[in-house]
Write a protein that binds this DNA or RNA. Structure first.
Length: 926
RNA sequence: GGGCGGUUGGCGCAGUCCGGUUAGCGCGUUUCCUUGACAUGGAAAAGGCCACUGGUUCGAAUCCAGUACCGCCCACCA
């Protein structure tokens, strides 16, 4: 059963994943010795395809999950997907467009059916891609934010909030995306700095006397909806004009000049045009000056005022603006208005001006702030719970700095606009009596006993309303036909329930009782507001418990050069491609290796070579170990302490430290530390040193030594595989079986216990002994390299020393093989052989210092040797000097801790001794 | 306008919370090596006044204050 010389991941990965899944290995172990450990996946959008961010996010989760599973916890990782309202609707609409259809033509019911069809067909793409990564989610518990249970949870949540008086509808200026034709929450708007202009426009005096007023604006097209011009009450040159009227250009409406604190008299011209229907600041200002609203209009009902000049499709109003502008695209209209103003001599000045403009986070369309009736959640009371979570309930962010970001957002929270004017999503569980509720009163209900009500409004569960026995209309008392509010809820309204809705809430299921609260949330900084904060509030509000104790925020992945990865830039590094090329394990290991706490990371393709090479190294190490064992046809079953060699003790000890370090690092979410420890152990200690020595030990005539070595090789490899398993699940499982560690083909490394260090085997003294050997070998190799001794040429090694010298005599074979030494001469006092190179090893690790001499008759270039020694002396001199300086400083002696002083003294003494030796050698050379 | 992060060999990054040997790693570079695990490899090596200025300290890459540049987030200056 010899292993092929290179590891080929794709076959192995496919085989093991199918196997794990088939035998239900990802399900929580009901007989677990430790308590539950739960993670809910940040549900990717159904429309999504796996990108590097997902790869990182899920790799980290899987590392924790597999680690905790091996530690014996009842581990549950709940997977699922998000219905992603707008994104999914967009995708299906685009599909329809190819058939020359619109969703309106199809009608709501048909359209939704279409989306479901799409979801059935394509919605599991990402879920399958997560499998390729090796994610050990319990797929039997997979959820979808629109599935029946979760829809029930959404309605229940809405009703509970409603009953608590936290839901209301209002007629507000909201972020409107003219392309998606829906309102968006503040968090869904992406502000981007855009180069624009500041136009100075004259509004002529209405009385004909005076110059009028000049306003500065970035959006001239909105002047058609102006209701006033405002100046600061304290200062500015227009202060005297307050109370007078000006004429709105191009429509010849007379509007007043008012005063308001919000105006900055030093900005622009000091005068601001007020367009309440299309600017949030103006809206707030207008609310402070209700007198602006024409007396014939309802003060609540802004629709009847001719101020809304841009329709929901982003074109100018068909009725509220002068004929030439009607129906024009808003940006076209801007041009035309500027031309017309210019023609009338009212455009005074055009300045370049950079301003930040809101864009739809889904389609990048420029947001049009627009007045419309929308549903909101009152956030203040909920935010209080979110703040409590960190201040009282012990929730913590890793890295901690996100705590402040989180708290700041909660402390300045604004109400959450939860209604969306799209079709794909959870329809709002509110019904209206068709005879009592008129569309034009929308958003003007009132508060009764702490609850928001509109005439004819019924709040309830879908099944109850649709059961055929709906409650009577609370207003007219009749059982007339009810129509459901057409809006759907923000996608995040279902996501914020995810940690418990996936476990069965609102039912008190066994899963909910067992696995809630979850253990840790692993996610990116970009959704702290969208998702994390809201989940915390929801968890506390609906269940009275924080949904997770730890929130691990990992960095964002960028491409080398600092840009964000994006399709349009064509700089995507596709994780699936990487998996095809180097394997999932290599991808995972590379990612973990570079994940330093919460730091953003730059990616380039060649970074995955690290993982690939490492996997290959591991594979080949196993191959080496296995080859000899298999050819002998026998497996060593035990080992005997009597036959343990110095290198054996060393590698065992190193393994213990590795176990401890990896466990500690994972506990602290220091994934990179853990990966680096393992990398270093496997490559630099196990492979570079121990395997080379093991080759020799396996040639030993004593079969006990051979057996012992083989046993040790297998033991160390097996434990290493287990330590590596969370990072590299596939290759470790494969090798674990190949080395015969599995009791039966049915067992899996996944369920083996996590290695724990044995303190008896972690022995620094034994490590030192071996390190001495390493030092000598390295030193000889160094000399050979400097003097170009051909690899096949053997050299003699003369060692002058006494203490602890046995380590060398006992390991002549190792010295011979690893350093090419054919003769070893050891004495307490030696005359330096002619033509030899000398090296003075410092005293360390409890041994006296040794002098190494390598006779290289005829090979030594004196100039090179002199240079080598001079450099050595110089280095020592520098170090000694700084130490001397410090030791001569009386304050150091009095203030520094005694052990530090002692250490310094000791090391200076040693340095001086060394320098003496080297100086002597240098003299001999001359 | 606020807040946060970064600045360490040619490149990409650890180390900084919690100050104390000779500051680590990967890539790249130089020299040598086709010795039966692995050239996706082995051996040896070169390369860093830890952005700058000042402070605290016996001692600073590490703590404090400030400066510069880069990046991110939040915010109603039209």
């Amino acid at each position: 059963m010899a292993l092929p010389p290179t590891y080929s991941p794709s076959e192995v990965e496919k085989r093991w994943y199918a196997d794990w899944e088939a035998r239900g290995a990802f399900k929580p172990n009901v007989n677990a010795s430790q308590g539950p450990f739960t993670i809910v996946i940040p549900p990717p959008n159904v429309t999504g395809i796996l990108h590097m961010g997902h790869a990182l996010n899920n790799t980290l989760q899987d590392i924790l999950i597999r680690w905790k599973r091996m530690q014996g916890h009842a581990v549950l990782w709940v997977p699922g997907t998000d219905h992603a309202g707008i994104a999914t609707q967009n995708v299906v609409e685009r599909q329809l467009a190819k058939e020359n259809l619109t969703r309106q033509q199809l009608g709501r019911d048909q359209f939704i059916k279409r989306v479901w069809t799409w979801k059935e067909k394509y919605g599991s793409t990402i879920v399958h891609q997560l499998r390729r990564l090796g994610s050990s989610c319990d797929w039997s518990r997979e959820r979808f934010t629109m599935d029946e249970g979760l829809s029930r949870a959404v309605e229940t949540a809405f009703l509970k909030l409603y009953e608590a008086g936290l839901i209301y509808r209002g007629y507000y200026l909201v972020n409107w995306c003219p392309r998606c034709q829906t309102a968006l929450s503040d968090e869904e708007v992406v502000h981007e700095e855009v180069k624009g202009h500041l136009w100075h426009i004259r509004y002529p005096s209405a009385s004909g006397k005076g110059e009028g007023i000049v306003v500065a604006t970035t959006r001239p097209e909105t002047l058609l909806g102006d209701v006033a011009v405002a100046v600061n009450p304290k200062g500015g040159r227009y202060r005297s004009l307050v109370g007078t009227n000006v004429l709105l250009p191009l429509c010849d409406r007379s509007i007043p000049i008012i005063e308001d604190e919000a105006v900055d008299s030093t900005f622009g011209t000091g005068a601001v045009k007020i367009t309440p229907a299309h600017d949030p600041v103006d809206f707030e200002m207008a609310k402070r000056h209700l007198e602006l609203i024409p007396p014939n209009a309802s003060r609540k009902d802004w629709t009847s005022i001719p101020v809304r000049v841009i329709d929901s499709d982003g074109r100018m109003s068909r009725s509220n603006v002068p004929a030439p502008y009607q129906g024009l695209d808003r940006f076209e209209c801007r041009k035309k208005i500027l031309e017309d103003l210019e023609a009338q001599g009212l455009l005074i000045k055009t300045e370049d001006y950079g301003t930040s403009i809101g864009h739809c986070y889904r389609c990048r369309t420029v947001i049009e702030p627009t007045l419309s009736p929308q549903w909101f959640v009152k956030m203040r009371p909920l935010a209080k719970l979110g703040i409590e979570a960190v201040e009282k309930d012990g929730m913590r962010f890793i890295p901690v700095r996100w705590t402040k970001v989180y708290l700041d957002w909660l402390r300045n929270i604004r109400d959450w606009c939860i209604s969306r004017q799209i079709w794909w999503g959870h329809q709002i569980p509110i019904w209206y009596c068709t005879s009592c509720n008129k569309p034009d009163v929308q958003g003007h209900g009132s508060w009764v006993n702490g609850q928001y009500v509109e005439p004819g409004m019924i709040v309830g569960h879908r099944e109850e309303i649709k059961s055929g026995n709906p409650p009577p209309c609370p207003t007219c008392g009749k059982k007339v036909s009810l129509v459901q509010d057409p809006d759907v809820l923000d996608t995040w309204f279902s996501s914020w329930l995810w940690p418990f809705s996936t476990l069965g809430w609102p039912e008190q299921t066994k899963d909910l009782n067992t696995f809630y609260p979850t253990s840790v949330l692993v996610t990116g900084q970009d959704i702290i507001f969208f998702w994390v904060a809201r989940m915390v509030m929801a968890g506390k509000f609906f269940l009275g418990k924080i949904p997770f104790k730890d929130v691990y925020i990992h960095g964002i992945i960028r491409v080398e050069g600092g840009k964000k990865m994006s399709k349009s830039l064509g700089n995507i590094i596709d994780p699936l491609e990487i998996i095809d090329r180097v394997g999932a394990d290599a991808l995972r290991f590379s990612l973990a290796h570079m994940t330093s706490e919460g730091q953003d990371m730059y990616l380039s393709e060649n970074k995955f070579l690290l993982g690939r090479n490492f996997a290959n190294k591991l594979w080949n190490a196993s191959r080496l170990i296995l080859e000899k064992i298999d050819s002998k046809g026998e497996r060593p079953i035990s080992f005997n302490l009597r036959f343990m060699t110095v290198p054996d003790w060393w590698i065992l000890s190193r393994l213990q430290w590795t176990m401890e370090g990896v466990t500690k690092s994972l506990s602290d979410y220091h994934f990179n530390d853990a990966a680096q420890l393992l990398y270093g152990f496997v490559w630099n200690e196990f492979c570079d040193w121990y395997l080379e020595i093991a080759k020799l030990q396996r040639e030993d005539p004593d079969i006990a030594i051979v057996q012992n070595t083989n046993h040790l090789l297998l033991t160390v490899l097996e434990e290493t595989l287990r330590l590596l398993h969370p990072f590299m699940p596939f290759i470790t499982e494969e090798l674990w079986h190949r080395i015969g560690a599995a009791e039966s083909p049915d067992s899996t490394i996944m369920k083996t216990p996590w290695p724990t260090p044995e303190s008896a085997w972690a022995d620094p003294n034994k490590e030192w002994a071996f390190k001495k050997l390493q030092t000598v070998i390295t030193e000889v190799r160094n000399i050979r390299a400097i003097f170009h001794v051909p690899p096949k040429e053997k050299v003699s090694l003369w060692v002058q020393g006494s203490q602890g010298i046995g380590i060398l005599t006992q390991h002549e074979k190792i010295l011979q093989r690893l350093a090419g030494i054919d003769r070893l001469m050891i004495k307490a006092k030696l005359d330096r052989p002619k033509g030899s190179v000398i090296s003075h090893l410092p005293a360390q690790h409890g041994l006296d210092s040794w002098d190494l001499m390598v006779p290289l008759e005829g090979l030594v270039d004196l100039a090179v040797e002199r240079k080598r020694i001079e450099k050595e002396v110089q280095d020592l001199e520098t170090r000694a000097k700084s130490k001397r300086g410090r030791l001569e400083d009386p304050t150091f002696r009095s203030k520094a801790p005694a052990d530090v002083v002692a250490e310094e003294e000791e090391s200076l003494k040693e340095l001086e001794a060394q320098m003496g030796k080297w100086a002597e050698s240098l003299k001999q050379l001359q």
